[in-house]
Design a protein around this nucleic acid. Structure first.
Lengths: 340, 340
DNA sequence: TTGAAAGCGTTACCAA
DNA sequence: TTGGTAACGCTTTCAA
């Protein structure tokens, strides 16, 4: 039979009493901070165990001026890539003994509110995976010694670190694959109001094609989607009435899947009628119905690096801003098969 | 030029000094808790504004014995339905002025750790979307007056509320659709170690078929997937060598998409060779390549109800456990088209 | 090594 | 209506 016993939480005071020592000793025993004899330490730990003592993180954080919380800013987690990034971050945050505070923002203005709220909780760090926080509010964080790291964001804020997939290399791999596959006319598919990462991939793609002697003025065409995600790609495929390029590179996976489906609807198939390479390598892109050739973003590695940067900067807040480029890998699937 | 000014956070003391009042008055002015004259209130608010004062939530929480945090337990957010549920919950939590503490668990044993950690932050409530927490630890929460609500979980813990999609009604709608579409032999696709919700859908499906005069002993067959998600469905389709049922109901969307693809691989297509109805209505199920007929789970409504339950129970912790069934809707798409 | 005591920033009770 | 003050539970300095 289940019994609910209403009880006050056990405090350090209780443990101290039971172990016959002072509150201070209890604190030392549990935080291994300050000297204590092995005997008393064990005595205290046993007492704590017996009483089921749990530190009150609010009190601890108040005293230390820092909680064990890490704030994470996300957006549109319905998007498979974003949810897998969040998953990676949660995993890493928890692995290192922190607890994630997650906020989903829907517009840039939410960023200020959110960041401010994070500071009110005295977070140990902030991870921004979406939006571009105004420098003023980021400086408030920096001023309060709260490390901030941006993921796949434009690295242009002092004292903030950035971890990005290597878009440059990714675009290069895509360009090489398409050129070697024999494509001569190219397309670059991206939605309006794309993120910095998307824009960068496009520029890098153009540059990489030029390096491969493609006359991008004549043979590279931009295909613009009016909205983001699957629907954007779908619409773009249906609306684009110009000649279909032979090799298309796309800013992300969702857009690519939508485009692929839109083209199917029009009776055009990859790789027969065109080649298509996406970005992200979401689970969906590997499914039977898509089999999208794509650049893989190493979410686990990105997450690890983000946390490492955060903890590094906590130790040394004023070190110069660092940018880390995480390796990407070309996954060969049906929409642009491996050559040779 | 950006300037980082290192500064201590502004405290209520600072505001008090500036407004020429006591700390206590500042607290009242901001929390509208306790009496205060309009004049002084405005004076204080102005001072707070000028100094950019932000309440320290750690201190506030310590004093009030309750933070503005709500703990959310999730798993496998790579799964589209789960990420959209999380999205709905985050939205609702933020809308009500709380902050979400999110933990992803990978096994049942993480639940205890997580729940305990939530209590250490003195959360205002806990939302469990995955796993089955041991009653003992839930009772610890209840004992500390922390409301707990389960989503799509088996409602069997005292003093805990539950919000579930109406699986019973969903299965009934599916059965009716399939029967009316002329199916005579039925299949029920689910993965081993399914959640309670999945199992319930299966039982309800069987029951609904019986109500429609189907001899389920002879004409309902279970198709079991050895793993969950898309891959589970895919494998099930490839491995299942018995006669293909005419009408198949599936425990969730991912499994259904995988099954659909696996069948395609085998040269079988819906709705030509069989009908298929899934659950969840994830974005993917509406895409051109799947067009899955499916039961829609109203994530927004589920989230709203969950929060409402939580706040209700905070006021009245010992009220009897409540279960709310949220309406589901059959979305007619290609894998089992609307009849007539 | 240990304990006393001074915070950490709020809130809430109780007098005034 | 207001201000003083005692919590809230923990950490850390400083003496002992």
């Amino acid at each position: 039979m289940s019994q609910v016993i209403r009880k006050q939480a056990v405090t350090a005071e209780d443990v101290a009493k039971r172990a016959g020592v002072s509150r201070a000793v209890v604190s030392r025993a549990l935080s291994s901070n300050g000297s204590i004899s092995l005997a008393t330490k064990e005595k205290v730990l046993r007492a704590a165990q017996e009483l089921g003592y749990q530190v009150n993180f609010l009190a601890q954080g108040l005293n230390r001026q820092r909680s064990h919380l890490i704030g994470v800013i996300v957006a549109r987690i319905g998007d498979p890539f974003r949810s897998s990034l969040l998953e990676g971050l949660l995993h890493e945050i928890q692995r290192r003994g922190y607890q994630a505070l997650v906020t989903e923002i829907t517009g840039e203005q939410d960023l200020v509110t959110t960041l401010r709220r994070f500071t009110q909780f005295r977070v140990s760090g902030v991870i921004v995976t979406s939006g571009k926080p105004p420098e003023a509010i980021v400086n408030e964080c920096v001023g309060q010694q709260i490390p901030v790291v941006g993921i796949n964001r434009h690295p242009d804020i002092p004292f903030v670190d950035f971890v990005c997939s290597d878009n440059h290399r990714g675009a290069q791999l895509a360009a090489e694959q398409l050129v070697h596959a024999g494509c001569r006319r190219f397309g670059w598919l991206i939605n309006r109001n794309s993120t910095w990462a998307g824009v960068m991939r496009g520029e890098a793609f153009e540059h990489a094609l030029q390096q491969l002697d493609v006359d991008t003025q004549r043979h590279l065409r931009w295909i613009s989607a009016s909205e983001e995600g699957y629907d954007g790609g779908w619409q773009a495929a249906l609306n684009d009435k110009d000649e279909l390029p032979e090799g298309i590179f796309c800013a992300n996976a969702q857009l690519a899947c939508g485009f692929l489906d839109g083209m199917r609807q029009r009776g055009k198939f990859a790789p027969h009628d065109f080649h298509l390479i996406g970005f992200d390598n979401t689970p969906q892109s590997g499914q039977f119905s898509y089999q999208l050739t794509t650049l893989h973003q190493d979410v686990a590695e990105i997450s690890r690096r983000a946390l490492t940067r955060l903890l590094e900067r906590a130790k040394n807040p004023l070190q110069p801003s660092r940018v880390e480029w995480v390796k990407v890998e070309l996954i060969h699937r049906q929409t642009s098969p491996r050559i040779g």
